[in-house]
Design a protein around this nucleic acid. Structure first.
Length: 819
RNA sequence: GCCGGGAUGGCGGAAUUGGUAGACGCGCUCGACUCAAAAUCGAGUGGCCAUCGGCCGUGUGGGUUCGAGUCCCACUCCCGGCACCA
């Protein structure tokens, strides 16, 4: 065995071994229970960053651990290869996005292999390959025919100088990132997927996703934002028109004192032509864009329209105002304002001197103070005609029923979630498989003409927009229905389309004749999914939606794609997120080159639990390296003494038994930490403790001592095998095994070895630590009490007091309560 | 504003069910080895007082309990998400 720990040699050998033996190839015919472990696939930006290393190390540790537990593990890897950075790079370096992307994939593949991740590379996929996106196009045309796809207008950020659409992240302080011109909002036609059809299922199923962090489930609940209420109509006096509003508080209906219209409401727009005050509000709403920080701090402003609405129950005339706090995008763009019981309505009413009429009082009969703000809680109705005296909940139903019976309203469920706009006015994405025909309208591309290939040999020019729009060879086509001249859609898909089903495609990446086959149902759902919290809502919601769509198409049979989810924390340096702009990045490759992949993996797993943020520390990395070197030396020195004799547990000395107990305690703790709690840091700490203890026992050259040493070192190697797989691969062979550690079984704690015949009890007086006593493990309370009171230090504290009670916790402590 | 999560030595963190606070690692101090340094190995390392040992200590203030980092109430600050959502 080499005298020195040389990670470069050891790691190259281990990786060559895995490759040669196809160690990580997952096979469908394997009879063991399947375990699908997936880390979120990366965008091929060119180089791995620390966030990737952390994410993929966690996934690899889980995969290797599950493999040792006897599962047939699938751990694939691929590339989320479409997206904006490739277009930006194309402009900067004059290289086509396709080439840039494929070069990055090649480079990053090498990095991943160098880190020793156990991926089944035979299933590798890149979403920019036509063999991949053709099936997404295929599904889209099916969903179109099914009615789950529709076309509507939606606002985009338009750069008037570059004549192009900008992504939100390309808009900086309301200006185009390249041109610096103020960005305009433009309404253009786009394709939508009816995710709202699945809103209820997406929401309700969250309750059953017990393997997901509560935080993520909550974020999705808020995002979907279901609210139950009543939709009702107010007649407009003197106009042949009604104002429809949604309210979650029909019980406050008698407190309506004005109506609020969004500035972009059709009525507001119409009145703006004659009314300068309204026109100003409209202009402000348009200019403000979507900058939420402005909105939140914006002062409540409005203008009287002069119109009057008629209260549906009392017939009272109510003024209609245009109000800048009413959103056109939510509900109907109009609200009934109840200033006594809604804070926003209250602020607006106060600003413009509108009446505030309380109709709810607290259930205890006190009167709610509405001078300082609205009373927004439930209570009992007052001054509400026939509903006076009812509790809010009862009034909700009664008023809703009254409105329904009069045909003036109905109960309704409203969602914050909107349909998913999947059109992007970009080049580097999957072409949307639709054809626009003047005669037939939009027509889906027939299956036998799929895929619609994205031309890859293109030049991207600044300010030129998507090259597809200027490529007749791409967009000129004939209508599949009437055969006349027609134009292809030149927009491409949102890249979330590709990442919404890749997990299923990994199961059957080589399938040429279908989107998915039976293997997809065999491997999915993903048992453990690992990725960044930044995908808590969009990616994870879209993927859940897509999975249900795939299910309804008969392609998979499960309801949810990801059984368990682990969201890893950020990697920080000097307390801040690593980023190029802050200049605090650490290049993983430089560390791998210097210390080896095992050290980088070990430190990453040791420095913090996976869901917390990880503070980078160069000296911590060196500490991890030192530990691996010590482990290497321990095995080297042990092996140098020749093969260890067999273990005779009954013949061990007390010291040897103590050490062996430590070995098995470590197994028990590490199994719990890695298998159940996912706290890899504490499992590593336990192994470090074990190694410290083994190091102190090195002089024991007896048969028993050497046998326990062998068992201890094997244990350390087995537990660390998922975390530092290369070194453990090497050491396991050195310890005399003929099969690789990657195929070894996870160690089991020996209950017999865990038994203690002596226990140390903590002795407290009035809850304060005053000493320790060592007793036989089966000692009872009387014996413990006697021993505790015999302690000199305990005597000092109870001498002049009366013992009132003794608390005994077997195996733990004895507390003498004295006064 | 609302919804999550958090605050523990000089630093990262541990304490799983209310039972020895600070495991493990980093850093630091001292010692061994060395001409010297690095590396390595050994010892120590929450603060204060001290002879055994004691007092204080887990963001702040209160409470429950024989016993609280852990449970309850009120609050401060930090991080993440959402937000005039009717």
């Amino acid at each position: 065995m080499e005298d020195q720990y040389r990670p470069q040699t050891i790691e190259a050998e281990a990786q060559a071994y895995w490759q040669e033996h196809e160690t990580f190839r997952a096979r469908e015919e394997d009879p063991r229970p399947k375990y699908y472990c997936l880390s979120m696939f990366p965008y091929p930006s060119g180089r791995l960053h620390m966030g990737h290393v952390r994410n993929y190390t966690i996934g690899d540790v889980v995969s290797r651990y599950k493999r040792m537990q006897g599962y047939n593990v699938l751990q694939p890897m691929g590339w989320d290869a479409f997206g904006l950075p490739a277009e930006n790079a194309a402009m900067e370096r004059e290289v086509p996005p396709a080439r840039w992307t494929r070069e990055n994939i090649a480079a990053m593949t090498e990095q991943l292999k160098g880190l020793g991740f156990g991926y089944d590379w035979s299933r590798e996929l890149a979403t920019c390959d036509p063999d991949y996106y053709r099936w997404e196009q295929w599904l889209f045309t099916r969903l179109y025919r099914k009615g789950l796809v529709y076309r509507d207008t939606a606002a985009v950020n338009w750069d008037p100088v570059d004549q192009t659409v900008l992504a939100n992240e390309q808009v900086i302080d309301g200006r185009g990132w390249r041109s610096g011109a103020p960005v305009e909002r433009r309404e253009i036609p786009q394709w939508f997927l009816r995710i709202t059809d699945y809103a209820d299922e997406l929401l309700d199923a969250l309750d059953r996703l017990e393997g997901w962090p509560e935080q993520v489930r909550n974020m999705q609940r808020n995002w979907i934002g279901r609210s139950e209420g009543v939709e009702l109509s107010f007649e407009l006096a003197g106009r042949d028109e009604q104002l429809t509003v949604f309210t979650t508080r029909p019980d406050t209906l008698y407190g309506v004192t004005y109506m609020g219209l969004a500035p972009e409401h059709p009525i507001s727009l119409e009145l703006a032509e004659r009314n300068p005050a309204i026109a100003e509000l409209v202009a402000e709403a348009r200019a403000g864009g979507t900058a939420e920080a402005d909105l939140a701090t914006r002062e409540k402003r409005g203008a009287d329209t002069g119109l009057e609405a008629v209260h549906p129950l009392t017939g009272e005339r109510i003024p209609v105002w245009v109000a800048n706090f009413v959103l056109m995008e939510y509900g109907s763009g109009a609200v009934m304002a109840v200033p006594a019981h809604d804070q926003r309505d209250w602020e607006f009413a106060t600003a413009y001197g509108l009446p505030i009429r309380p109709v709810i009082q607290p259930a205890d009969g006190s009167s709610a103070p509405i001078d300082e703000g609205a009373f927004a809680e439930y209570g009992v109705l007052i001054d509400s005609g026939p509903f006076t005296g009812m509790p809010s909940a009862e009034a909700f139903t009664a008023i809703a029923e009254r409105l329904e019976s009069e045909g003036r309203g109905q109960r309704r469920t409203q969602y914050r979630l909107r349909d998913w706009g999947v059109s992007r006015q970009r080049y580097w994405g999957a072409p949307i498989p639709m054809i626009h025909c003047e005669q037939c309208g939009p027509v889906p591309v027939p299956d036998d003409q799929l895929p619609v290939r994205l031309p890859e040999d293109v030049a991207i020019r600044p300010g030129g927009g998507s090259p597809l729009k200027t490529m007749p060879a791409f967009y000129e086509t004939t209508c599949p229905d009437c055969g006349g001249a027609a134009q292809r859609e030149t927009d491409t898909f949102d890249t979330f389309m590709e990442s919404s089903w890749y997990f299923a495609r990994f199961a059957c990446a080589d399938q040429e004749h279908a989107m998915l086959d039976g293997r997809a149902d065999q491997w999915t759902p993903v048992d453990q999914y690992i990725g960044g919290i930044e995908h808590a809502v969009l990616h994870l919601l879209y993927a859940r939606f897509y999975h249900k769509v795939l299910r309804d198409e008969g392609l998979v049979s499960s309801d949810e794609p990801f059984t368990r989810l682990l969201t890893q924390g950020m990697v920080l340096k000097d307390g801040a997120k690593m980023s190029k702009s802050k200049g605090n990045t650490v290049d993983p490759q430089a560390l791998v080159d210097r210390f080896g992949a095992d050290t980088v993996r070990l430190f990453t797993m040791f420095a913090a639990p996976p869901d917390q943020s990880l503070e980078w520390s160069d000296s911590g990395v060196e500490g991890a390296y030192r530990f691996l070197r010590r482990l290497h030396a321990l095995v080297r020195d042990h092996v140098a003494r020749g093969p260890a004799p067999g273990l005779d547990a009954d013949a061990l000395s007390e010291t040897q038994r103590d050490l062996r107990r430590k070995v098995h305690e470590t197994i028990a703790k590490a199994s719990d930490d890695i298998g159940k709690r996912f706290t890899f840091n504490t499992a590593i700490a336990a192994v470090m403790e074990l190694c410290n203890a083994l190091g102190k026992a090195q002089e024991d050259d007896s048969d028993g001592g050497r046998a326990v040493m062998q068992e201890g070192l094997e244990t350390a190697v087995l537990i660390l095998a998922p975390i530092a797989p290369h070194l453990c691969h090497h050491l396991y062979f050195q310890l005399g095994h003929e099969t690789p550690v990657v195929d070894a079984a996870w160690p089991q704690a020996d209950e017999q070895a865990l038994i203690r015949d002596q226990v140390e009890l903590v002795v407290q007086v009035n809850g304060k630590l005053r000493g320790h006593v060592t007793l036989p493990a089966d000692a009872g309370e009387d014996q413990a009490r006697e021993a505790a009171l015999a302690e000199a230090n305990v005597q000092r504290f109870v001498a002049d007091k009366t013992i009132r009670k003794v608390v005994f916790v077997p195996g733990k402590l004895i507390n003498v309560v004295a006064q």
